[in-house]
Measured scan of single mutants.
Amino acid sequence: ERVRARYDYEAQNEDELSFKKGDIITVLEKDDGWWKGRNGKEGLFPSNYVEELE
């Protein structure tokens, strides 16, 4: 599954994923509120910062 970033997100910890608004992220795992994904790097990000691609 792929999602698009709705906002910029700056990683707060080294296991998190940074991205810019409009970036496409491949979702690897979904957990409550935090998803694991890849966009060149791999890490956790808040699920409310992304939207599913149509």
Rank of each mutant, 00 (worst) to 15 (best):
E52P: 15
G37P: 01
E52V: 13
W35T: 06
E51C: 08
E29T: 11
K41Q: 11
G43N: 02
G33D: 12
A11F: 03
D8S: 09
F19Q: 03
F45G: 02
L28G: 03
K36G: 01
F45K: 02
V3L: 06
E52H: 12
N39S: 09
A5P: 04
S18Q: 04
D8A: 06
E29D: 12
E42A: 09
L17C: 02
Y9W: 06
L17I: 13
P46I: 03
I25Y: 01
Q12T: 11
V3I: 04
V27R: 01
I25V: 05
G33I: 14
A5R: 00
T26F: 11
P46H: 06
I24F: 07
D23R: 00
W35Y: 08
L17Y: 02
E16Q: 14
R2G: 06
K20Q: 08
W35C: 05
E42V: 15
E16C: 06
E54H: 12
I25R: 02
V27A: 03
V3C: 11
D8T: 08
W35S: 05
L53W: 12
G22E: 03
K41V: 10
S47N: 07
G43V: 02
K21R: 10
L53A: 07
D31R: 15
W34H: 05
A11R: 02
Y7N: 08
D32Q: 12
R6C: 13
Y9I: 01
K41W: 07
P46M: 08
D15H: 15
L44T: 10
K36M: 09
G37M: 02
F45I: 05
K21M: 10
E29G: 12
N48M: 12
G43I: 00
I24E: 04
E16F: 06
D23S: 07
G22I: 03
D32I: 12
E51H: 07
E42Y: 08
S47L: 05
G33N: 13
P46K: 06
G40L: 08
I24P: 03
G40N: 09
G22Q: 03
F19K: 02
R2V: 14
V50P: 01
E52W: 10
E29R: 11
L53Q: 06
R6T: 10
Y7D: 10
W34G: 04
D23Q: 07
N48P: 06
E14P: 14
P46T: 02
Y7W: 15
Y9Q: 01
G33F: 15
N13F: 08
L53S: 06
L17W: 00
R4K: 12
L44S: 10
T26R: 06
N13V: 05
G22A: 02
R2A: 11
G40I: 12
A5F: 02
P46E: 02
L53H: 07
E54M: 12
G40V: 11
E10M: 11
G43S: 01
E54F: 13
Q12M: 11
E42M: 10
N48K: 12
I25L: 09
T26Q: 11
N39T: 12
A5V: 07
K20Y: 06
V50N: 01
E29H: 14
W35I: 08
W34P: 03
R2Q: 15
K20T: 09
D15Y: 15
E52Y: 12
E14C: 08
G43P: 01
I25Q: 02
F45Q: 00
G37E: 04
Y49E: 01
L17P: 01
G43A: 02
L28A: 04
P46Y: 05
K20R: 12
K21L: 07
E16S: 03
K20H: 09
E10W: 12
D31T: 15
A5L: 02
K20F: 10
R6V: 14
K41N: 10
Y49N: 04
P46C: 08
N13L: 05
Y9P: 00
K41Y: 09
N48W: 15
E10S: 10
F45E: 04
V50S: 04
D31A: 15
E42N: 07
N48H: 14
G22D: 07
V3K: 05
T26G: 04
E51F: 06
N39P: 00
L53E: 08
D23M: 06
P46G: 02
Y7C: 15
A11Q: 06
E29K: 12
R2M: 14
E16N: 03
I24W: 09
D31N: 15
D32C: 12
K21T: 09
A5I: 02
Y9T: 01
G37R: 00
G37A: 00
S18P: 04
A11V: 01
G33T: 12
N48D: 13
V27N: 01
D23G: 02
W35F: 07
E54R: 13
E52A: 15
D8K: 03
I25D: 00
L17V: 05
K41T: 11
N13G: 11
E29M: 12
L28P: 00
D23Y: 03
A5S: 02
D32Y: 09
G22C: 07
G40M: 08
K41G: 10
Q12P: 03
L53K: 05
Q12H: 10
P46N: 06
L28F: 08
L44W: 15
W34R: 07
N13I: 01
G43K: 00
R4D: 06
Y49A: 13
D15F: 15
L44C: 11
G40R: 07
N13R: 11
E1A: 10
V27C: 04
K41A: 11
E14L: 09
E29L: 12
S18K: 00
K30T: 06
R38H: 13
E16R: 03
E14K: 11
D23W: 07
R38D: 12
V3A: 07
L28H: 04
R4C: 09
L44M: 14
D31E: 14
D32G: 15
K30V: 07
T26L: 13
K21F: 05
G37W: 00
D15Q: 13
D8N: 10
